[in-house]
Write a protein that binds this DNA or RNA. Structure first.
Length: 804
RNA sequence: GCCGCCAUGAUGGAAUUGGCAGACAUACCUGACUUAAAAUCAGGAAUCGGAAACGAUGUGCCGGUUCAAAUCCGGCUGGCGGCACCA
């Protein structure tokens, strides 16, 4: 027997798999299809991290088993390669982002291939490849044509010292991540995508999907649907002020109103306002507050605001005039940017009313509004509320909503916290937005036959001091002609955000080399939807919602046949450093997978990461225990020496072998790879105790272990002369009749304490088992002198006597 | 503040959905092999008491349901992740 040497064997098999295209997916055929997806990585300059292989391997185990079971599997990999870190790395090291990206991809590919993951490398995609982003741009154009892409003045993060627009991720506690300078809000015109139009469907359609609970829960929470009503308040200025509220039942308690400092009416009402200077000062202060100051700190601070002198509102329920304030606790971006304040039953309004000495009226009985706002909507009845008096909150909501409708003073309304997607970045390393500005025609989409609009190769890709994209400096690229009227025009210089390319990449995997369309109808029909998608929790609300939104849009325009892209979503836990902290360069606790493979081999790395613990939970890396996985593989390898010639399983081992087959198969489907491995370790211990394995037993062990440790099992299979390759064998079957041991050990409890054990034949009847149990001396002693109240028989497991 | 998740030996973690807590592994201890060490093999081990048989106690804390609770219920404590002035 040759020595177990992963350095020799692993590259040999990896090369063979690539050359023979062992794992290449073929579209079509009679076998059931299985599209398994893991999130494609961002190829960073740091190279692969030990966290990456965890999901790749876990799903690899599933698909390797599924192939053996006869499924037609698509398991692809690619690169989400546009983005800020690459651009920043390029700036710092004076290397062009295109070159950085190419190098990083090559490194990542080699590192992933060294793990022996059964990806179909013929379907690799790269979001920075013009033949790929052609279709990202195409989808944008379709969105634009359907009115789902629009330009809007939006506040962006502006670093006052770098003079550059920052992404939200670059703003840390209100300061620039790079220089520590102050970050303020600066208004720029940005492309937006109307994801809010899909908000309801994005929630409702979650119901038919097999997402783990925490994913669907946080998507729902993020979209934030609430049910309430719009209510129209008249004003002394003549304009109606519409508010959104989830508590229309409390309208009789609305003793003042608040509008956001950005509210449109302030401009309109300026001539009427007697304290416009004070108001302007407050507006200015609010504009200069960063988001951080306005939310993170703001909620703990005292409420601020200014009374509008010269305009009053009219409560439609009471008919009374009430004052109107501006305050930054009312957000311009939610609802109508105005609220009716009900200090008796809203904590924020209560705090504001207290500070400004405004009346607090109780309209729902049950609390003590002198102490705090009473917000319990489950209990409480309406008081001081005219025709609503005596109703419960739920009844009152319905009653007042009907009344509002009758009186033309409002209507029921559903609202969402979800905002439209800011789709512009003032950066170089992203997909150009295929739009042209013409002074006479306005925004004109680039004709589809001019796609892809390639990102020009420029050397001065650092951001401009005006906050424009670096592309804006390049007149030769910016200046073009209007596709509509032919006059001189300018290209959009903003690029798409990093989320764009990843919003549809799974579709491209179905037909990655198609130059006519993003993927052929036949390929999409065959492979979509994704049957199982695994990824990180950090992508639950952005990537997952963006891609579901795009997919629903493509469904609406007939490109795909189903409304949802992913049938099942699971999520892996992070791998922490040995100190239990998140791995990071600054902590010095980063483990490099290359080193692990060099020392122990890829199979050991795979088995270790699968054995480390519950897949969904974070797990600390532990260098000391890796050797346990290596030892296990060594022992499996060594077992081929001196195989017993029998091709069958020995009768005394049948039950353990069949139980292991059943357990490993079931555990894999539930991503409980840790217990599957434990079961195989146990089987190996049993085989060793039985003086080694027969050929038949060894074949089964290698088949079960193959999805976890594909290289060593193939090598041992070949060395043992079993013929063919393990990956080409059918998955072992188990026989229900062979699961049971002939005899079982049954625990005997008296009043919940184990007092003895009996060995009995497997199918023993209750009466016989009880009799045998009572014959055990220790049980007899425990029963002596007591009255037997109850006898419980759990077949094959335990007997419990309850005595008094 | 809200939402979600978690708490089991020295360590990572198991426990057919209420049925013998601690599988499997790491570290540790003992023995075999070895001049020796490593590697390998065999064995030990939750804690406390006891030489041992054995007994008692044990799954973050307090209480409950049950013949039986890591698991279910009520009330806490601590930790992790996300959201956060959303009317």
């Amino acid at each position: 027997m040759i020595k177990y040497d992963p350095k020799q064997m692993e590259p040999k098999w990896q090369k063979r798999w690539l050359e023979n295209k062992t794992f290449a997916a073929v579209t079509g055929g009679d076998r059931p299809k299985f599209f398994a997806l893991v999130e494609f990585p961002y190829p960073s300059a740091q190279g692969l991290h030990v966290g990456h292989p965890r999901p790749y391997t876990a799903i690899d185990v599933v698909v390797r088993k599924r192939r053996m079971e006869g499924w037609n599997v698509l398991y692809p990999m690619g690169w989400d390669a546009f983005g800020l870190p690459t651009e920043n790395f390029a700036l710092k090291n004076h290397i062009h982002p295109a070159i950085v990206t190419r190098n990083n991809i090559n490194r990542f590919r080699a590192q992933i291939q060294a793990l022996g993951i059964s990806f179909d490398w013929d379907r690799e995609v790269d979001t920075t490849d013009p033949s790929y982003y052609k279709w990202t741009q195409w989808i944008f154009l379709q969105l634009y044509k359907k009115g789902l892409a629009y330009k809007k003045e939006m506040a962006v993060n502006w670093c006052t010292s770098c003079k550059v627009v920052l992404a939200n991720e670059e703003v840390v506690n209100g300061a620039c991540e790079r220089c520590g300078g102050d970050v303020v809000r600066k208004v720029k015109s940005q492309w937006m995508l109307k994801i809010t139009e899909y908000a309801g469907r994005l929630i409702d359609d979650l119901d038919g999907l097999d997402y783990i609970e925490r994913v669907s829960a946080s998507q729902k929470h993020w979209i934030g649907r609430s049910h309430g009503a719009d209510i129209v308040f008249g004003t002394t200025a003549g304009d109606d002020l519409v508010v959104y509220t989830t508590r229309p039942d409390t309208v009789f308690g609305a003793t003042y109103m608040v509008i956001s400092p950005e509210h449109d009416y302030l401009k309109k009402w300026a001539p009427l306002l007697k304290n416009s200077e004070e108001i302007a000062a407050y507006q200015d202060a609010a504009a200069h507050k960063s988001d951080f100051e306005r939310t993170e700190l703001g909620k703990d601070q005292e409420k601020t605001g200014v009374l509008l002198q010269g305009v009053e509102a009219v409560n439609p329920a009471t008919g009374e005039n009430i004052p109107v304030f501006i305050s930054d606790y009312v957000l311009a971006s939610y609802g109508t940017g105005a609220i009716m304040a009900v200090p008796g039953h809203d904590e924020r309004d209560w705090a504001f009313a207290r500070k400004f000495g405004l009346p607090i009226v109780e309209v729902v009985a049950g609390g003590n509004i002198d102490e705090a706002a009473y917000t319990d909507i489950e209990n409480g009845t309406l008081v001081n509320s005219g025709f609503l008096n005596g109703l419960t909150v739920e009844e009152a909501k319905k009653e007042i909503t009907d009344w509002l409708l009758r009186k033309h003073k409002g209507e029921a309304r559903v609202n969402y916290k979800l905002r439209d997607w800011v789709f512009s970045r003032q950066r170089y390393w992203g997909e150009p937005i295929p739009m042209v500005w013409c002074d006479t025609c306005g925004w004109v989409p680039l004709p589809e036959d001019q796609l892809p609009l390639e990102l020009p190769y420029i050397e001065d890709f650092e951001p401009t001091g005006e906050g424009d994209s670096p592309l804006a400096r390049h007149d030769e690229w910016v200046n073009t002609t209007c596709p509509k009227c032919g006059a001189a025009a300018k290209r959009e210089t903003d690029t798409m955000p990093q989320w764009a390319g990843s919003s549809w990449y799974f579709l491209r995997y179905c037909d990655p080399h198609n130059s006519e369309m993003l993927a052929s109808e036949a390929a999409l029909d065959y492979w979509m939807p994704v049957d199982w998608y695994n990824g990180g929790m950090e992508h639950t609300t952005l990537h997952m919602l963006y891609s579901r939104f795009w997919h629903k849009f493509l469904y609406d325009i007939g490109v795909v046949k189903g409304p949802e892209p992913y049938m099942k979503r699971t999520s892996h836990g992070m791998i922490l450093g040995e100190d239990g902290q998140k791995m990071s360069k600054s902590r010095g606790n980063v483990v490099n997978p290359d080193d692990v493979i060099a020392e122990f081999g890829a199979d050991t790395m795979r088995v270790y990461e699968m054995f480390i613990g519950d897949f969904e939970k974070t797990a600390p890396w532990n260098t000391a225990s890796i050797k346990g996985s290596r030892r296990f593989l060594e022992r499996v390898w060594a077992l081929q020496d001196g195989l017993l010639p029998d091709e069958a399983v020995r009768p005394e081992l049948e039950s353990v072998v069949h139980r292991t087959i059943k357990k490993v198969g079931e555990d894999i489907e539930h991503l409980k790879h840790n217990t599957a491995i434990a079961a195989m370790m146990s089987l190996l211990n049993d085989l060793a105790a039985a003086g080694g394995a027969t050929r038949g037993e060894y074949r089964i062990l290698l088949q079960l272990l193959n999805p976890f440790a594909p290289h060593v099992t193939e090598e041992a299979w070949e060395q043992s002369g079993f013929g063919g390759e393990v990956s080409g064998q059918p998955w072992p079957a188990w026989d229900e009749n062979k699961l049971q041991e002939d005899t079982v050990e049954i625990a005997v409890q008296v009043n919940g304490k184990v007092r003895g054990k009996v060995m009995l034949p497997a199918g023993v009847a209750k009466g016989d088992a009880l009799a045998a149990a009572k014959a055990v001396p220790a049980v007899q002693a425990a029963l002596a002198g007591k009255t037997l109240a109850k006898e419980i028989w759990v077949p094959g497991k335990l007997i419990s006597f309850a005595v008094k």
